[in-house]
């Protein structure tokens, strides 16, 4: 069976480290890190071409990102024929209601505020790890 991935889109290295650590504790998947929206879209594009996108179990997406925002990445995923069914969880420190509403509209598995990330992230990971 081919290796599966969790795509983490996060610009802050500390947050990326902590998230990777939590993922590592509950999931066997390999973490792919994209440090801004552009990098995420490029990576997803390449993975679409070589079909490896099918191995992505989950996308953990920060909203506030350099260059291309998390919301735009989410829009790109939802408008792509191949990627539209990917599980996406938003990890954010933004309490902007419009952002949240838009994310739920586009379809996300969960919307997690960063200060309380750890436990909730673990439970989300466990849920989709079983799926």
């Amino acid at each position: 069976m081919a290796e599966s991935y969790i795509l983490l889109v996060e610009d802050n290295p500390d947050d990326a480290f902590l998230a990777t650590r939590i993922i590592g504790k509950v999931c066997p998947e390999k973490v792919l890190l994209a440090r801004d929206g552009e990098e995420a879209i490029e990576l997803l594009h390449r993975m679409t071409q070589d079909q490896s996108y099918k191995q992505i179990r989950l996308v953990l997406l920060d909203l506030k990102l350099p260059k291309i925002s998390g919301l735009e990445v989410l829009q790109a995923i939802r408008s792509s024929d191949e990627l539209r069914f990917l599980f996406v969880v938003v990890l954010t420190s933004s309490d902007n209601d419009l952002d949240q509403e838009r994310c739920w509209e586009l379809g996300v598995l969960d919307y997690i505020f960063k200060p309380m990330a750890a436990e909730r992230l673990q439970s989300v990971l466990l849920r989709c790890g079983r799926g």
Binding site: N12, D15, L18, M116, A117, A118
Partner: peptide, 15 residues
């Protein structure tokens, strides 16, 4: 807002 993220990180590292 701005202070929350680093504090959350600090909390994460403590944990």
């Amino acid at each position: 807002h701005d202070l929350r993220a680093p504090v959350a990180r600090l909390e994460g590292f403590c944990r």
